[in-house]
Design a protein around this nucleic acid. Structure first.
Lengths: 336, 336
DNA sequence: CTGAAAGCGCTAACAC
DNA sequence: GTGTTAGCGCTTTCAG
C-alpha cells in the first residue's frame, strides 16, 4: 500500500515528472494513439510514482459524461425499499457496473423533494442514465422518464403504458404456472389474492390467474385484492373466507401476503394444504420457513438487476435494445 | 410540468435574460449577499422562465466539493448485501440525505476491482465523505479508511481497532439482555451459537453472553461458532447437540442462524421452548414467522443508517462527533 | 452593490 | 507523433 498523497495530484505534475506535454500524458492515460512507446513508459512510471488518479469531476466536465448512473425508486411509501427484493436487484446491478467505470447512485424518490430531484435528473443530463422502478401506477415521473433525453431503463412494466426500454419478470406466465399447478392437483374452487392493481406486477399476475382458469374451464370469480403486504394478505384472506367459504385453493400474488393468509387460514381452522392449497410468488427467503413451507413462483431477481444494467449500458453505447422478459418458475413445497 | 429544455441551460443565458452579469446571477442562485433586490427578482424570473438547473459537475469542479457521499460495503462475499439488513440501513441513510443536497453513491466493494475503487475513493477526495461497513475483520481498507483525509464514518465497529467515528448497535448489551432473560426463565445449561468472530457484532454478542452467565454464576462453556448464515446455524446446533446434549437453552447470535438451529432441534425431537429455549438477534421479519415465533433482540437498523448519515454530515461540517451506541431491546415471543 | 477575470483539472481540435 | 490552445459551466477573488 503506497503512501497517501495529501493533495490532488494533477495531470500537469505527471506530465512534468515524465518530461512530456500534458496532452501526451492525457493520451497515455486514456490510452489513445499517437504517443511514442518511450513517452508512454515515462508517463506510466510518473503516474505510479506520484500516485496519480484522474479527477473524475474535471473529466466529467470536459467530456460531458458524468460517469455515473442512477437507480431510482419512485414510491409513495418510504418503507417500500426495505423489501429484500431491492437489495437483490442492487446486487445484480452492482455486479454488472463493477466491470465498468460507472458509479451507481441511489435515489429513493419518496418525498416531494426526492421526486423533484429525480425530475431534475431526467431533465438535465446530470447522469449518464437511469434505471427506474416506479412503484405506483399513475406516477407522472414514469411517463416523463420514458420520454427523457437521458437513457432510461424501467425495472418492471408500469400498468399505464409500455416503456420503450424495460426488463421485467414473466409475471403473467408465472401466475399461470402457479394456477395451472393448482388445477393439476385437482382443485376446482381456486381463489386469488391479488397485489396492488396499480402496479404492473399486480395486474399481470391477476391476468395469469384468469387465463389459467379460463383454459381449465373453471370459475375465476373468487377474488380479493391485497396490497402486497402481509397485513393486506390477511385482510384479503378473511374476505375470501367470508365470501367464498367453499374455496379449496388460493393463488396469492406475493409471499408476504401468503404469509398473512396462512395465519388467517390457521386461525379459521383450515389446514394447508389438505383443506386449502396455497401458492405464493417471489420465493423470498421466509417462504422456506413458513408452516408449511410455501410453494411459490421464483423470479430471477438478481438477473433482473443485471439485465437492467446491461440494457442501460447498451443504451448509453447507442444501441437500441428490445424489452426483456425474464422467465419465472414454480418451486414446489408443502403448501400444495 | 414545464417543458423540457433540450440543451443544458447555462448560467450565462440566465444572466443575459435577466440583464445582469454572470456573477450577479451566480450570487442570487447561491443566495449570497451583495445583490440588489431588483436584480434578485429578475434573476429569479429568468431561472424559472428558462428552467435553469445548475450543472452539478461544473459546480463541483469550481467548489472542490463533489456533492455526493458514498455508502461502501466492503465484503468478501458479493451476496452479503442481499441481507435485508442493508436495505433498512439504506432507507435510514436516504431519509437523512434527502434533506440535503447530497447524492448517495453505493459501492459494493467485493471484487478486487471494487476494493481498488474504494481505495481510490479514500485516497483522492472524489467524494465528500464515506460511510463504511466492513464485513470482515482484517480488512486493510478499514484501517486505511480511518486515517483517510476524507470524512469516514463506520457502521458497526471492526474487531481489530476502534475507529474514530462510528455508530453501532449495543451488541454486547443486547446479548446480555437475551442471556439474562434465559437465566430468569430458570435455564441453567445455556449454550450459544456465535456469529463470525472476525466481525465486531460476532465478538460483542459473544462477550455479552459470557458476561451474563458470569454474573449468574453459570457455566459459559457450551459454545459453537457459526457464520451468521442459516446453514451455519444448523451446523453449529448439531455440534452443540452432540457435544452438550444436556443444554436447555441457546442464545443464537442472529435470527438467520436461529432459523437453522430451530430446524435441527425439531429434527432431533427437542421441542422449543419446552426442552430448549431459543433467543435470536436482529428481529428480521421472518423471525415472526418461525415455528414457534422467535424471541429476539431488536436493533434499530434504520436509526443506524440515519445516525451514520447524521454523523457524516457533522464531520463534513467540521464538527468532531463522538461514537454512538444505539440501544437494543428484547422482543419476547414464544421460543422462550 | 457590481462586473471582469482568473481559475477548478481535464479533454479535444488543431496546427506543426 | 507532438505540443499549443481553447474550452466544459461554475465560483470567487479582486478592483471599482
Amino acid at each position: 500500500m503506497t503512501e497517501i498523497p495529501k493533495r490532488q495530484v494533477t495531470l500537469d505534475e505527471v506530465a512534468e515528472r515524465a518530461g512530456v506535454s500534458r496532452s501526451a500524458a492525457s493520451r497515455v492515460i486514456n490510452n489513445a494513439p499517437h504517443v511514442s512507446k518511450a513517452k508512454r513508459e515515462a508517463v506510466r512510471r510518473a503516474v505510479l510514482d506520484l500516485g496519480y488518479v484522474p479527477n473524475a469531476t474535471a473529466r466529467a466536465l470536459a467530456t460531458q459524461q458524468v460517469g455515473a448512473v442512477v437507480l431510482a425508486i419512485s414510491s409513495d411509501n418510504p418503507q417500500a425499499f426495505a423489501d429484500p427484493f431491492f437489495a437483490e436487484v442492487v446486487v445484480g446491478i452492482s455486479a454488472v457496473l463493477e466491470e465498468t467505470e460507472l458509479e451507481l447512485m441511489l435515489l429513493l424518490a419518496t418525498s416531494a423533494r426526492g421526486q423533484t430531484r429525480l425530475e431534475q435528473l431526467l431533465r438535465t443530463r446530470q447522469t449518464d442514465g437511469v434505471m427506474l422502478m416506479s412503484m405506483h401506477g399513475d406516477d407522472p415521473l414514469a411517463a416523463l422518464a420514458d420520454k427523457a433525453e437521458v437513457p432510461v431503463v424501467f425495472g418492471g412494466c408500469p400498468v399505464t403504458f409500455e416503456p420503450r426500454y424495460y426488463v421485467d419478470a414473466d409475471n403473467r406466465g408465472g401466475a399461470r404456472l402457479a394456477t395451472e399447478h393448482l388445477v393439476t392437483l385437482g382443485r376446482t374452487r381456486i381463489a386469488t389474492i391479488t397485489g396492488r392493481m396499480d402496479e404492473g406486477a399486480g395486474t399481470a399476475r391477476y391476468k395469469g390467474y384468469q387465463e389459467a382458469l379460463a383454459v381449465a374451464g373453471l370459475d375465476a370469480g373468487r377474488v380479493a385484492h391485497g396490497d402486497f403486504s402481509e397485513a393486506g394478505g390477511s385482510r384479503a384472506m378473511a374476505e375470501l373466507l367470508a365470501g367464498h367459504p367453499d374455496l379449496d385453493a388460493v393463488f396469492v400474488a406475493s409471499d408476504q401476503m401468503a404469509i398473512g393468509a396462512l395465519r388467517v387460514l390457521k386461525d379459521a381452522g383450515r389446514s394447508v394444504p389438505d383443506d386449502v392449497a396455497i401458492v405464493g410468488f417471489n420465493d423470498v427467503i421466509s417462504a422456506r420457513h413458513t408452516e408449511p413451507p410455501l410453494t411459490t413462483v421464483r423470479q430471477p431477481i438478481q438477473s433482473l438487476g443485471r439485465e437492467m444494467a446491461r440494457m442501460l449500458l447498451g443504451l448509453i453505447a447507442g444501441e437500441t435494445p428490445t424489452p426483456l422478459i425474464l422467465p419465472t418458475r414454480l418451486i414446489k413445497r408443502s403448501s400444495t
